[in-house]
Write a protein that binds this DNA or RNA. Structure first.
Lengths: 197, 197
DNA sequence: TAGTGAATAGACAGACCTGTCTCACTGCTT
DNA sequence: AAGCAGTGAGACAGGTCTGTCTATTCACTA
C-alpha cells in the first residue's frame, strides 16, 4: 500500500470523512461506531487503531472541518482588496454554504450542544474554531477602526453569523443571510462608537 | 390524591421539571429514561402513562420551557414604556439568564442540533419558539419603523441573541451580552434603511 | 365496606452501544 | 522466499437504551 503519510493514511481519511457526513446529518450520540465503519467500509480495528476512542474521532473530525474552513476563507480573502470586501467574502461563504444541498447547520454548534462540559476535548475544539473566526474578523476590522471597536464589532459579526446559521437550519436561509449582511454593514458603518441607551 | 387538574397532575409536573434539568445539563440522547424517573422519584409506568414516548416528553418539556419564557417576557414588557425599552428588557432577560448559576445554553438550539429532521415534532417545537421571539420583537419594532424594516431588524436581533447565547455557552457571557446590546441598538438606530455594499 | 383508579418496584425483551480480541488474508520490502 | 505491517470480518463482553408487563399497595369515594 502506498500510504500518503504516516499521519494520514487513506483509511484514516475515509473514516474521518464518513464520520463527518454522519455526525453532520444525525448528530454525535445518535451516530454509532458500527454505522461509521460500515459506511466507510473499514474494519472496526482499523478505526480503533487510528482513533483511540469515539470522542477522539469526534475531535479529529472537528479539526478536519476547521482546517478546511480556514483554508477556504484564506483563499477567498486573497481575492478581496478592501477590509469591507474581506468581510463580505466571509458572508459570501456562508451564503453558499446555506444554499448547499446537504446543509444541516453548524457541526461545531451541534458539538457544543452535545458536549457542554468545558473540560471535554470536544468543547475545547469548538471554542477554538469560534474564537479563530472571531480573531480573523477582528484583525480585518482593525484596519478600518480602533482595536477596541474592532473587538466589539468582530464579536457582533460572529453572533450574527451564528444566529444566521441557526435560522438557516430552520429553513430561513434566504432572509437569514440577507438580514445578517445588512445588519453587519450597519454595525461596521455606524457613525460613532456604539452606545446602548 | 388531590390532583391539581386533569391535564397537569403533580407527578407529571415532577417528570417535566426533572427532565428539563437533565436535558439542559446533559443533552437529549445522553439522558436516559431511567435517570429521569430515578431523579423524579416516579415509577416508569407513571411516566409512560403521561407521555407515550421519550420524543413526546421532549416536546412537552420544550413547550413547558417556551411558555415560561413567554410569561417572563410578557411581565417585563409591561414595565417598559417605549419600544426601545421593551427591546432592552429582552436583552436584560438574557443577561440575567447568562449569569445564572445553571446556565447551559439554549435548550431549543440544543434540540435542533440533536433533531435536525424538519418533520420531527421536536424540530417544529424549536421553530415555533424561535419564530415566536422573532414575531414578538417585530411587533415591538413596528411602532418605530416601517414593517419591512421591522421584519429585517427583528431577524437581526434574533440572530444576535442566538449568537450571544452560543458565546455565553463558551464562557464569554459578559462580552457577548454587552456587544450584542451595542450592536442591536446600532442596528435599530441606523440612519436609514440598511444597505450592503 | 367494597370498589376504583393511580402509583409503585422491578423483571423483562430486544435492540443498540463502545471497545477488545482473534484469526485469516494481502501486498510490499528485504 | 520470508517476514511484516496493515487490514478485514466478525465474535464477544459488559453495559445501556426504550418500552412493556405484572403484581402489589395506597388513598379516596360511593
Amino acid at each position: 500500500m502506498i500510504s500518503s503519510s504516516p499521519l494520514g493514511s487513506d483509511k484514516r481519511r475515509y473514516v474521518v470523512e464518513t464520520a463527518y457526513a454522519l455526525f453532520k446529518r444525525d448528530g454525535f450520540h445518535a451516530t454509532g461506531i458500527d454505522r461509521i465503519i460500515a459506511e466507510a467500509e473499514v474494519a472496526k480495528m482499523t478505526m480503533y487503531r487510528h482513533f483511540p476512542s469515539k470522542d477522539d474521532l469526534i475531535v479529529q473530525v472537528l479539526d478536519y472541518r476547521a482546517r478546511r474552513f480556514d483554508r477556504q476563507l484564506d483563499r477567498l480573502a486573497e481575492e478581496a482588496v478592501t477590509p469591507e470586501q474581506k468581510i463580505a467574502t466571509i458572508f459570501d461563504w456562508y451564503e453558499r454554504w446555506f444554499r448547499s444541498a446537504d446543509f444541516h447547520g453548524c457541526l461545531f454548534a451541534h458539538a457544543l450542544a452535545e458536549f457542554g462540559n468545558p473540560e471535554h476535548p470536544v468543547f475545547k475544539a469548538v471554542a477554538g474554531q469560534k474564537n479563530g473566526l472571531r480573531r480573523r474578523m477582528q484583525s480585518i476590522l482593525e484596519d478600518i477602526m480602533p482595536p477596541d471597536r474592532a473587538a466589539s464589532t468582530a464579536a457582533a459579526l460572529l453572533m450574527l453569523i451564528e444566529g444566521a446559521t441557526l435560522m438557516a437550519e430552520m429553513g430561513q436561509a434566504d432572509t437569514a443571510i440577507c438580514d445578517a449582511r445588512k445588519a453587519a454593514f450597519s454595525i461596521i458603518a455606524a457613525p460613532s462608537a456604539m452606545t446602548a441607551p
